[in-house]
Design a protein around this nucleic acid. Structure first.
Length: 871
DNA sequence: GCGGATCAC
DNA sequence: TATGGTGATCCGC
């Protein structure tokens, strides 16, 4: 399909005029630009969407204003200097100009719409679009006369063109057609780069070389119908061309150069001759030039799929892409591989035509008087002063007609996500439920590719179209629905709580996962897992882990159990929402955890604040969580240095186990009790690899205490706990877990009724069933709460989330956006009180070096953006 | 690492 | 009545 770049702006007027489609002559259908804009505005104005568009526009204008102010301060001296510098760079670029490659860009014409028209003759000669009432993917050329474009909502399109037929997309079909096309492309460049189902770049340099020596027969193709079996190889039998196909592409070789050796126009084949496969009049021989190759490709595509494609030929990808648009539809254009031809082409080219220059960039550059590539070149010195290096380098490339001359292999994917738009959802329970469903979908997708990641990001768009993203990175990879949800849920909760008592009025939610480990990370992880397993000990053996996994699977969590219907299905069919149904867990045996769990009692060691250092730093006794040796009365800074040194040095025993630092003011759940839990991620190696390291920046005395697992002979790596305010957790079920004896070795945890209502606001409405293995109770060392899972990974995720939460809260304090600040201050509820963070994690240079050393090199054709003037 | 923005398709 | 989903990148924190 055609690019959606233009959206509503009519940058393709030249194209439409070329096609004679935009002339509003008497008797011709279609609308003129003015009418189109009026209808769009009438349909748009006053909507929440429009209001948000205005808001965004204002932000852009502000950016432009900032830029102009900056420009005003530039002295002629600075400009001269910049000019010299940039021009030296231009010389370098010129020297590196490479015209030796032949790159082509193939773009199927109105792809989805064309497929639908091909398969349903009824749609022919009618304005159609593929998509839905809310969004169109593409439209056919007939519909475009009415201003109906890709990325336009269907209901507006209907106003522009009431006869418009909106066809729902059939992606499976498009994929199949796309595959047929790609099979052809692979003949010319096995390493071609597909950008989407309908677009691809090819480097045909090599093919051209070989082709020079090819005999004619190898370049001969016969006309055939699309029903015939895969006979599109050269030199094969002639097939019948039916009338349908003859009418399909009257334009194909309209501009054929002399070297196109047609032995009869394939589209005017004599039917009597067709029946004889040997008749050469039904064949066509393509030449050896790049243009001929592209004609051949387009011919073969059309023969095979009955669909037309446009193409561009140029010495680099940037130019090839623009060229493919030049004679669209069903045409091609070449820029010859010499500097003059390139510069001539570039001369009056509007920068907006370039892939990567979008609406905002166009507007910003326009404010500087830059419209064409020539303008861009003339302003190069100014641009180097106003924009980031990546940006002005990119601009300079464009203005010189430079671009990638090779096709970068598809790298490894960097993220995976799911998101969904819906009609307003404001109930927290429904939001959690939806979130969980998205997590499940994402987990499935991850599984298909065997991926696991460390960063989970949620995306929220409210009914005013304002978008927010919130991310959390954990120390070990996650991939299951439960693990992802454990993280996403907390992120969502933070957002819900932040606006309480106002509900989040959402229209979209998304979940993304990223930070996939690279090969090196994987090895690393493998090593430490092996180390962990070999360390085998009282805590959890490998078999324990496996046992837990299987048991967990039987008890799996809420949604997945009764999840035949999706959230949306349920929402549709749901009549009324009953809270009673959502928490079926009754309090059966009101039995507290501490009586049911065989905890080892440990002496807590509370440090006293005794001294004050020279710089007024408070001091206390610390126990290093790495070497586990008491560090005496030292300053925090000194203590942190010590921890760094320990982490760098080989001070950790391979057999090291976890013990816990727990809260001094422990809740009743684990007061003065030591809990055995194993973090695979707490092996030293992983600890090192953790991007965020723990640094104690302030201590609430008596709060940070160590508990040493006396049963363990080896020393332990540890985590640190921080204090949280009562407000934050008073509503959490620390005291409300009840255990119902389920079967021999496990317990089912249920919630007390009094907590249900509170949880209803915060947690999923689904009934939770968890399993706790006797003797394996997991207590989070951060929030100090019993964890409702026996899954170690899940537990680890929880701890990470808890730690991150401290950071999130901390940051929010000074980084609230103005809107929220307003809300916050206008609110009288005490709900906004935040955790007092006593432990934060900061970057530690000593630990980061290793990590940053493995940083990836920036890809050559990296994109740019222009955030310079924001704020 | 995070969050907002921009861009492409 | 009503304006998408996925992935990538950049910038300034």
């Amino acid at each position: 399909m055609d690019s959606t770049k233009e959206k509503y702006d009519n940058h393709k007027d030249d194209l439409l005029l070329r096609m004679g489609l935009n002339d509003n002559k008497a008797g011709m259908e279609g609308l003129d630009k003015e009418k189109i804009n009026k209808i769009i505005m009438d349909a748009t104005k006053g909507s929440r969407f429009y209001e948000n568009e205005l808001k965004k526009e204002k932000q852009v204008n502000q950016r432009i204003e900032n830029m102009m102010q900056q420009k005003a301060q530039i002295t002629s001296q600075q400009l001269r200097k910049a000019q010299a510098q940039v021009d030296r760079f231009v010389t370098e670029l010129e020297q590196s100009r490479n015209l030796n490659n032949t790159i082509i860009h193939i773009d199927m014409d109105a792809f989805y719409a064309a497929v639908e028209m091909r398969d349903n003759p009824e749609l022919k000669d009618k304005p159609i679009a593929v998509g839905s009432v809310s969004m169109l993917s593409t439209s056919n050329y007939h519909a475009r006369r009415f201003g109906v474009r890709a990325a336009m909502p269907g209901f507006i399109a209907k106003r522009l063109c009431p006869q418009l037929i909106i066809v729902p997309p059939n992606f499976d079909k498009y994929r199949a057609v796309s595959k047929e096309v790609k099979e052809i492309l692979a003949d010319y460049d096995p390493n071609f780069m597909a950008m989407s189902l309908d677009e691809a770049y090819l480097n045909i340099t090599k093919h051209l070389e070989e082709r020079q020596n090819w005999p004619e027969d190898k370049r001969r193709y016969f006309v055939k119908t699309r029903n015939s079996v895969e006979n599109d190889k050269p030199g094969e039998e002639v097939n019948q061309l039916n009338e349908h196909e003859r009418s399909i592409s009257p334009l194909l070789f309209e501009e054929s150069p002399p070297d196109l050796q047609l032995s009869g126009n394939p589209f005017q084949v004599n039917f009597e001759e067709q029946n004889n496969p040997q008749i050469l009049q039904n064949s066509v021989v393509f030449g050896t030039s790049a243009e001929e190759v592209v004609k051949e490709i387009r011919f073969r595509i059309e023969q095979k799929t009955t669909l037309t494609a446009s193409a561009g030929i140029a010495p680099n990808t940037m130019l090839a892409k623009i060229c493919s648009d030049k004679h669209k539809p069903n045409g091609q254009y070449q820029i010859l591989p010499n500097r003059q031809a390139v510069m001539d082409f570039i001369k009056d080219l509007p920068i907006r035509k370039v892939s990567g220059i979008g609406k905002v960039t166009e507007k910003m550059l326009k404010a500087l008087g830059i419209i064409t590539c020539t303008d861009l070149y003339q302003q190069r010195a100014l641009l180097s002063l106003l924009f980031s290096e990546t940006s002005w380098h990119y601009f300079l490339d464009i203005s010189l007609g430079l671009g990638s001359t090779h096709l970068a292999r598809d790298g490894e994917r960097k993220s995976m996500s799911v998101e969904r738009t819906f009609s307003e959802i404001s109930k927290a329970e429904e939001q959690y439920s939806l979130c969980q469903e998205l997590c499940s979908e994402l987990a499935q997708d991850l599984q298909k590719e065997g991926l696991k990641g460390r960063t989970v990001t949620i995306k929220l768009k409210n009914v005013n179209f304002e978008v927010k993203t919130r991310a959390s990175t954990v120390s070990s990879v996650v991939s299951t629905a439960q693990e992802i949800f454990a993280i996403a849920k907390e992120l969502l909760k933070t957002e819900i709580d932040a606006d309480f008592p106002h509900p989040l009025r959402l229209r979209l939610m998304g979940v993304r996962i990223s930070s996939f480990p690279n090969e090196e990370d994987k090895k690393h992880q493998q090593k430490s897992i092996i180390g962990f397993l070999q360390a085998g000990n009282q805590s959890l053996s490998a078999t324990d882990c496996i046992r837990e996994k299987t048991e967990k699977d039987q008890f799996v969590k809420p949604l997945e159990m009764s999840q035949k219907k999706s959230f949306f299905d349920n929402k549709r069919s749901e009549k009324k929402w009953s809270h009673k149904d959502t928490f079926k867990c009754e309090t059966v045996n009101k039995q507290s955890l501490q009586t049911s769990q065989p905890f080892q009692v440990l002496k807590t060691k509370t440090s006293e604040n005794l001294e004050t250092s020279e710089n007024s730093d408070k001091r206390q006794i610390f126990t290093c969580p790495v070497c586990f040796r008491e560090q005496g009365h030292i300053s925090l800074e000194a203590f942190n240095k010590h921890v760094d040194a320990c982490l760098d040095g080989p001070s950790i025993s391979e057999n090291s186990k976890m013990s816990s630092y727990s809260h001094a003011s422990s809740t009743e759940v684990n007061k003065e009790e030591n809990v055995h839990y194993s973090f695979s991620l707490c092996e030293k190696q992983n600890y090192e690899a953790h991007p965020k390291n723990i640094e104690i920046t302030s201590v609430d005395y008596g709060d940070l205490v160590g508990t040493i697992d006396s049963s363990s002979k080896t020393e332990s790596v540890d985590t640190l706990s921080y204090k949280h305010s009562k407000e934050e957790y008073s509503s959490l079920p620390s005291k409300s877990f009840n255990i119902e004896n389920c079967h021999q070795n496990s317990y089912t945890v249920s919630l007390e009724n009094e907590d249900v209502e509170l949880l209803n606001r915060q947690e999923s409405h689904q009934p939770y069933l968890y399993e706790v293995i006797t003797g394996q109770t997991l207590v989070c060392p951060v929030c100090n709460l019993e964890q409702k899972t026996s899954d170690l990974t899940l537990f680890n995720v929880h701890v990470d989330v808890c730690l991150n939460k401290g950071i999130i809260q901390e940051l929010r304090k000074d980084k609230v956006n103005p809107v929220n600040q307003q809300k916050e201050s206008s609110r009288s509820t005490g709900n906004s009180s935040r955790i007092q963070t006593t432990v934060t994690r900061t970057k530690r240079p000593g630990l980061m070096t290793k990590h940053s050393a493995s940083k990836k090199i920036k890809p050559t054709n990296s994109k740019h953006t222009l955030d310079t003037f924001f704020k």
